[in-house]
């Protein structure tokens, strides 16, 4: 009898509506509808203020022929590639850290600090570090007798790589923390068994620990690649895509089109393409990592 009441109470339609409505309203109005509208606005010639004029797929066709769009896409994918490769380095640090190192807890806290700072503060700090004449980096280089150190952010051929260093600095602690947590979850008995069988620490790390946290590693691959494709704040503040587009990425190009050139129609089309590209890449990586999994078993 009581249980019957219980089911009735817990499936009260009005209550369910009341509790989910605020969340649903916000998500639909401020996330789902804008995403769809972005594709729709992409079909318009529009300066953001005046009337829209329907121009069909012209913006999308223009984007495909726009070398600046392709360059920024290439830069975004380069960042994604760097980010994915650097995961191996983070994993190596986490493996060392998790192998009963004294002070591991303090170290991983230190590693994490940059992750907590705003991208704006990080960008401003690294602008100072990279300052050609008075920055920390060139002061150190000149100390070592390098007379003409690079101008880092002002040099189109290295700016993208220069920007990648603060990105590593920002995220290293985050990935190390995740790997460390996963490694600490491995049952001690497995490691002990391998030790008894005479496995070296390196063998234990590569043959036992890494395969056991492969699922976490796959999640971080998706996180880092998708995160890189939509990366914006730090680049926008450090170089705003310059010099001359050398560090432009998809999000910064879209932002510039919309909020500097007031080309809202074309900007929307680029924004929508960013969404499509991100979704496609997410699906592809998930497919790729899933199939590897099947081979393993």
């Amino acid at each position: 009898m009581g249980l019957c009441d219980m089911n009735k109470v817990m499936s009260n339609k009005w209550i369910i509506f009341l509790y989910t409505f605020p969340a649903l309203l916000l998500i639909v109005v401020l996330i789902v509808i804008p995403l769809i509208l972005s594709g729709y606005f992409g079909l318009m010639d529009w300066d953001g203020i005046g009337a829209m004029e329907f121009i069909g797929l012209n913006n999308y066709i223009a984007a495909l022929q726009d070398s600046k769009f392709w360059e920024s896409t290439l830069h975004s994918f380069l960042l994604a590639l760097f980010s994915a490769i650097s995961l191996i380095g983070y994993l190596a640090v986490a493996l060392i850290l998790a192998s009963k190192i004294k002070g591991a807890n303090l170290l991983r806290k230190i590693y994490l600090i940059p992750m907590l700072l705003s991208s704006v503060a990080i960008a401003q700090l690294w602008i100072k570090i990279y300052n050609p004449s008075n920055g920390m980096l060139n002061s150190i280089l000149m100390w070592f007798g390098i007379d003409n150190p690079p101008a880092w952010l002002a040099d189109p051929s290295i700016v993208l790589y220069a920007i990648f260093i603060p990105i590593i600095w920002q995220y290293a602690g985050f990935y190390i923390l995740i790997y460390y947590a996963a490694l600490k979850n491995i049952p001690e008995s497995l490691i002990e068994a391998a030790k008894i069988d005479g496995a070296t620490p390196l063998q234990i790390a590569l043959k036992i620990k890494v395969p056991l946290i492969m699922n976490v590693f796959k999640v971080t691959i998706v996180l880092s690649i998708v995160g890189s494709l939509k990366y914006f704040d730090l680049i926008y503040v450090m170089t705003s895509g310059g010099p001359n587009g050398a560090s432009e990425v998809m999000a910064s190009y879209m932002y510039k089109l919309a909020f500097s050139s007031y080309n809202f129609g074309y900007g929307s089309a680029i924004g929508f393409l960013l969404l499509i590209i991100t979704l496609i890449v997410t699906v592809i990586i998930q497919k790729l990592t899933a199939s590897k999994d099947e081979i393993q078993y």
Binding site: I33, K230, F232, Y255, A258, L274, L275
Partner: peptide, 12 residues
């Protein structure tokens, strides 16, 4: 997973 930039212009 969505990039916020894709929703930015319509939100604005």
């Amino acid at each position: 997973m969505i990039p916020i930039h894709s929703a930015l212009i319509p939100l604005y």
